[in-house]
Computed example of a mutant assay.
Amino acid sequence: MPQRSRLATEIAAVLRRERGSRRLTQQQLADRAGTSQSAVARVERGERIPGIPLVERLFAALDLQLAVTTEQLDSQLDARMDALAARPLRDRIGDLELDLLLDRLGDLPYRLTGSTAALLQGAPVPVDVVEIAVRWRDSARFTAWLRAAYGQRWDARWREFGGLYLEPEEPGEHLWRTRYGDLRAQMCDELPPAVEVRHDERSYRVVPLLAVELTDPRAADLLRRHRQRAAGGAGKSG
């Protein structure tokens, strides 16, 4: 499956946000721009870079115009990681509302993994969703919890929450939005070995950083980037 274009994804997100802020349906925007609802839907899914004339018409229909700038590759990510490194870990955990979600999980067996585990072990990596590992044999309990938490599953095709099935056994990304926050699950046969970390009198069972790097490509890329930048900064200061 071809990798999504970052530019197409950004155009899609901005168009959805601006259309939504004006309380327009896709059909209403299409009528204004002289195109079809299906064309608007394709742009908003971000599956490929749309033609510039179509994008210009869509934004013009919202009384907006495109502005083109350039920046260093991944400079926004670097700036975000720098900002995170400057903030107390307590605040970063609070931003994620991690404790609220974990309290609501009750006695469901889980391990914190991915970027969430990296965060709790001090890495200044962006975390937008709580990541846990859950055993397949606990999937029925997990599904029942998702229903009780008013979960909505991420639909990768339509790039929105609201997938028809909550069950982890159903095809699709293991990402849900719940009343307590967003949750990504790594389904596994057995819970991975964990270490215990403590912050503000609370204990968390997390997957060690080395294991995170071996099992989670998304988090591994962030951790490698953090180390490379830290090493580069140390070299310059020396």
Rank of each mutant, 00 (worst) to 15 (best):
A211K: 08
H174M: 14
R153M: 02
W154D: 06
C188K: 12
Y204P: 02
E169R: 15
A211N: 12
P208T: 01
V195N: 04
E213I: 12
D189Q: 15
D128W: 06
W176P: 12
G172L: 03
E173V: 14
R202T: 09
C188F: 11
A148G: 05
V206Y: 01
E196K: 10
D200F: 00
A149W: 00
D128V: 08
T143P: 09
R205L: 12
E169P: 07
G181V: 05
D221A: 15
G172K: 00
A156N: 05
H199W: 13
R147P: 04
V197E: 04
L164C: 11
E173I: 14
W145P: 11
W158Y: 13
V212R: 07
T215G: 07
V129D: 07
L164A: 15
R157T: 15
I132W: 07
P126A: 04
P171G: 06
R184Y: 07
R202C: 04
E169N: 11
Y180P: 00
L166E: 08
R218P: 01
T178I: 03
D138E: 11
D138F: 09
G163P: 10
L183W: 08
A156H: 09
R179P: 03
H174P: 09
L146S: 02
A140T: 12
V125R: 02
P193I: 00
V125H: 01
G151W: 00
Y165C: 11
H199K: 05
D182I: 05
D138V: 02
R147N: 07
G151R: 00
D216K: 07
L166H: 10
R159C: 01
R184E: 13
V195P: 05
A133Q: 10
R157E: 15
E170T: 14
E169I: 13
L209H: 08
S139M: 02
R202W: 06
E173K: 13
D216Y: 02
E167S: 15
Y150N: 12
E190A: 15
M187W: 14
V206K: 03
A220L: 08
V195L: 10
R147W: 08
Y165W: 13
R137T: 10
A194W: 08
V207D: 03
P171N: 09
L214H: 08
A220V: 10
D221V: 14
A220G: 07
A220T: 11
Y150L: 11
S203L: 06
A133K: 00
L146M: 03
A133M: 11
D138H: 06
R202N: 05
P192F: 12
E170Q: 15
H199C: 04
A133D: 10
D200Y: 02
V129A: 05
A144Q: 08
A219W: 02
L166R: 05
D155H: 03
E173Q: 15
Y150S: 13
G151L: 00
